[in-house]
Simulated assay, not measured.
Amino acid sequence: MKKYVAEIFGTFWLVFGGCGSAVLSAAFPEVGIGLLGVSLAFGLTVLTMAYAIGHISGCHLNPAVSIGLWAGGRFPANQLVPYILAQMIGGVLAGGVLYLIASGKAGFDLSAGFASNGYGAHSPGGYSMMAALITEIVLTMMFLLVILGSTDERAPQGMAPIAIGLCLTLIHLISIPVTNTSVNPARSLGVALYVGDWALAQLWLFWAAPITGGLLGAGIYRYLGSKD
């Protein structure tokens, strides 16, 4: 049970820290942290939680990661559903706390996006659904390659959280203009649930694409990392 609770807290931190930086700090007058700051915030949430709960739950914080680790032979199938449910709970709780904070400012408007992921008219850069799909699949695939490679018993020990956190930072630097960056269905759900409307209508892509990418990354690493 402690593993599932750890995943709730870990995913809460990822969504609250990452999306919170986007909603509260990205464009703050004169001292906003911008795209670079938001990207770094997401990376730091994973880095800090990997050291905090990695030894308890493995610090997945992401249904696509859990599914990818299962496909890569690193995670038992019978724990997949509880992990994913815990991640969803953590994401939704984080979205709720962030909403309570953000709505305390005059002029707050959920329709501005609330850090939700989107494509077409709801892509920050106006990118198409196909562009969003390809972006999310490819980047989640690379994320799983980094996760599986850096946590391999043959890799330098103790360095995996740094590699994974920096990888997530890089992923955001690439893709915030395209989709606002998901690569994580729980992160997408956590804020889309409060926006409703278009955010929920487009949520399917931010489940389907990261899971597909996670499976691809796992399959590639099973080939590259095999010892025979």
Rank of each mutant, 00 (worst) to 15 (best):
M130I: 15
M130H: 11
A131P: 11
A131T: 14
A131D: 15
A131Q: 15
A132S: 14
A132I: 09
A132Y: 02
I134R: 08
I134H: 07
I134S: 12
T135M: 07
T135R: 00
T135A: 10
E136K: 03
E136I: 00
E136C: 02
E136Y: 04
I137N: 03
V138A: 15
V138D: 07
V138C: 13
V138R: 03
V138N: 07
V138Y: 04
L139R: 00
L139N: 02
L139K: 01
T140R: 01
T140P: 03
T140Q: 00
M141D: 00
M141A: 14
M141C: 14
F143H: 01
L144M: 12
L144H: 05
V146R: 02
V146A: 10
I147C: 04
L148A: 13
L148N: 10
L148M: 15
L148G: 12
G149H: 02
S150Q: 03
S150R: 07
S150C: 09
S150H: 05
T151F: 10
T151R: 12
D152R: 10
D152H: 15
D152F: 14
D152Y: 11
E153D: 11
R154C: 04
R154N: 10
R154G: 05
A155N: 13
A155P: 11
A155K: 12
A155V: 12
P156V: 07
P156M: 05
P156N: 03
P156K: 00
P156R: 00
P156T: 07
Q157E: 14
Q157V: 13
G158T: 04
M159P: 06
M159Q: 12
M159K: 14
A160R: 09
P161R: 09
I162F: 14
A163G: 09
I164Q: 06
I164S: 06
G165K: 04
G165W: 05
G165D: 07
L166V: 13
C167Y: 03
C167I: 06
L168Y: 08
L168V: 15
T169W: 01
T169Y: 01
L170F: 15
L170Q: 15
L170D: 11
L170R: 10
I171A: 07
I171C: 05
H172E: 06
H172I: 04
L173V: 13
L173Q: 11
L173W: 10
L173M: 14
I174R: 00
I174S: 14
S175N: 09
S175A: 15
I176M: 12
I176R: 10
I176W: 13
I176A: 08
I176H: 10
P177G: 08
P177Y: 06
P177L: 10
V178L: 09
V178P: 02
T179G: 05
T179Q: 08
T179C: 08
T179H: 08
N180Y: 11
N180T: 08
S182I: 07
S182P: 00
S182D: 06
S182R: 05
V183T: 09
V183M: 06
V183D: 01
V183F: 02
N184W: 04
P185G: 01
P185H: 02
A186L: 04
A186R: 05
A186G: 04
